[in-house]
Amino acid sequence: MSSVRNLTRRNLTRRAALVAATLGAGVVLVACGGDGGDSSGSGHDAHASASASPSAGDEAGTTAGAHNAQDVSFAQGMIPHHQQALEMARLADGRAASGAVKDLAARIEKAQDPEIRTMTGWLKAWGEEVPEAGGGMDHSASGHSGMSGMPGMMGAEDMAGLEKSEGKAFDTKFLTLMVEHHEGAVEMATTEKSKGRYGPAKAMADDIVTAQNAEIKEMNKLLGKSG
């Protein structure tokens, strides 16, 4: 009888030990799980992502859409400036004697016509006034002569004189006037680069400075100048 009681006590002791061990392990697991939940990468990162994402999105939106008065002025001024350059370039096909002049005029038209469309799109998106296209060779007070105050912009007399020129006389006049016209565009674009805010406009301004400075050097060489 005593042996049975001893066996029963041993069994109870073992069960108690097992229960205690199991409970202890559970506590450890819970504690570990709790620590991981509070400081694990998933919980912390989720919070960080939630707080970081809006600011990142806001910054991206601001960069993409932000513009200032200088950006508007640049587009509104450069559109008619480019339009006049196109008018000058289109005269070369039937008047220029030099193939180099004709090639230059074609490149000017190819580069500046798409830029006019791009800047027009900006102004419309911003709800700003878009300059009207200069309907052909309009030299009246309501035409390009009214814009002659902009850097490099030709007056009515210069434009009319170019239109009447032919052959080598046209080449010389075209190159001389276009150098001045390009210098004005570079001046306007340089102002946009330093004072503008809209990224695409500043990038276009940088392209204008680079391309038109190169063309100025090319035209000066055609004119027999070193500059």
Rank of each mutant, 00 (worst) to 15 (best):
A52S: 13
I79H: 02
S142Y: 11
P54A: 13
A100L: 04
Q70S: 10
A75Y: 04
H182K: 06
G184D: 05
E180Y: 01
A100T: 09
T22F: 11
V27D: 06
G77S: 14
K173G: 07
M204W: 05
S145P: 05
D93S: 15
A60G: 12
V19C: 03
I216N: 02
A85S: 15
S165C: 03
M153C: 01
S3R: 12
E109D: 15
L29D: 08
T190E: 05
L7G: 07
G146N: 09
P80E: 13
S226C: 07
G77N: 09
S226Y: 06
V179C: 06
N68H: 04
H82F: 08
D103A: 15
D103Q: 14
A205E: 00
A189C: 08
S3A: 14
A111D: 12
L18V: 09
P151N: 12
L177C: 09
L86E: 04
A214F: 13
M137C: 03
A46E: 12
S49P: 00
T190A: 05
N220Q: 11
A46W: 12
L86P: 01
E215M: 03
S40H: 05
S53A: 12
S51H: 08
G136L: 06
I216G: 05
T210G: 00
G146R: 12
T190D: 07
S145A: 01
L223P: 13
K193D: 02
A25T: 06
E87P: 00
A203F: 01
L123P: 01
V179S: 06
A211C: 03
E59I: 10
N6P: 00
M137S: 02
M159P: 10
E166P: 10
D71T: 01
E192C: 12
A203C: 03
G65N: 14
L18I: 10
L18W: 02
M188T: 02
H81C: 03
G24L: 13
L91Y: 15
A97C: 03
G24T: 12
E215F: 07
T13R: 15
I108F: 10
T62D: 08
E192M: 05
A201L: 00
N68A: 02
L177R: 07
D45E: 03
E115K: 14
S98D: 11
S3Y: 11
Q83F: 10
M1F: 10
H82V: 08
S98E: 08
P151H: 08
